[in-house]
Design a protein around this nucleic acid. Structure first.
Lengths: 195, 195
DNA sequence: TTCTCCATGTAAGTAGTTACATGATTGG
DNA sequence: CCAATCATGTAACTACTTACATGGAGAA
């Protein structure tokens, strides 16, 4: 995705390297009980991947950095002869996670969807093709909702156990795509009656 | 944003360099009548910036590439002594834009929003802070809607002239943020009553 | 035995960013 | 005359990606 500027270079040099969003995602997942890099990747795919992704190649360097600055502590726990490292969040890690979560800098909204770009330029196509694009965008959102509904029972369970956050973000996803579907449906007639 | 894989490297070597999304955005904007790099940047900010951004440092190299492969044609049109280059889309450019718009590869949906990540991890904060975050996310969407409503009259005018696309994408944005607001409002009580 | 999953890590590359440099024109 | 806007371009950098390499463990 996109470049998310970290704190100013000046401050970075003056104090210590600022962590980027991927490092906080890793920290948060360790805080929620993920133990290895592999488990972090799995948890991301099952939870936040609707609005955030992280590649394996980012996770391991992040774990190293987080351990170096004392926010997590790791120890070797090999499976057979294969090396493996598991981590726990430290006191400082919890404190830093909380600080990051509650820090009140404005959070810029950022959506990057080439499908909407194509819809914006749809006039450059003929009628059938523009309509086909609109239908594809609608179907894409329908598919996303199906996927999200799949993990809904798990999120509801966690909600009943007192943590509404996963259900909240899941409902965001559903509402979001439902909104896209509704707008597509609303504009379909206009896309039918065109030169 | 995010890495958007272009076509396979093999094909790229075998035939000719594949254009990435930024180049098509530039091509599309030239097609809609933008003439200079500067105008492209302005048009993007006034139209698609809700779901796509492009930095000036990307625009000029894209213009060069597009001209080299014959999709746009440029000529010098200096303002005073300062050099300036203006462009028009070519026949091939129109054809390639249409091909890209109607090509039926699946378009992956991609949202990347650190605010939702923070909401997902909200349990790590205490009640007041979690609630404050929820409220901030809601207000952020309210602000986005205000901005979008601002350009709505222009989009409606273009719609009445027979091009519904800008209004469609604008309505997407509004519906999108309204969905976020609704979900935030729905979960606010749950965030009040928490340990 | 061979397939899939668990698991870690690196190399090479692409995409995108900010920050800077430069200077003309227009409006107050 | 000064600030804002028009306008183009580059350098240095950060973030992130894909592809690959490696290999153990368990199941079919």
């Amino acid at each position: 995705m996109r470049y998310m500027p970290r704190a100013s270079a000046i401050r970075e040099v003056a104090t210590k390297p600022t962590l980027g969003p991927p490092a906080y995602v890793v920290l948060g997942m360790i805080g929620l009980g993920a133990r290895s890099g592999y488990e972090i990747k799995q948890m991301v795919e099952l939870s936040i991947r609707f609005f955030w992704t992280i590649s394996q190649a980012q996770i391991y360097p992040s774990l190293e950095t987080l351990e170096r600055v004392g926010l997590i502590s790791g120890r070797a726990e090999p499976r057979g002869k294969r090396p493996r490292r598991v981590y726990d969040i430290t006191e400082q890690g919890n404190a830093e996670l909380e600080r990051w979560l509650s820090d009140d800098e404005p959070i810029p909204f950022e959506l990057r969807d080439i499908a909407l770009v194509k819809l914006f330029f749809a006039e450059a196509m003929d009628r059938e093709q523009a309509l086909a694009l609109l239908v594809r965008v609608k179907e894409r959102s329908e598919q996303q909702i199906v996927t999200l509904r799949h993990i809904e029972p798990a999120a509801e369970l966690v909600d009943q156990q007192g943590n509404p956050s996963p259900l909240l973000t899941l409902r965001m996803g559903v509402a979001f795509h439902q909104a896209m579907i509704d707008v597509c449906a609303e504009f379909e007639p206009k896309f039918h009656a065109r030169p």
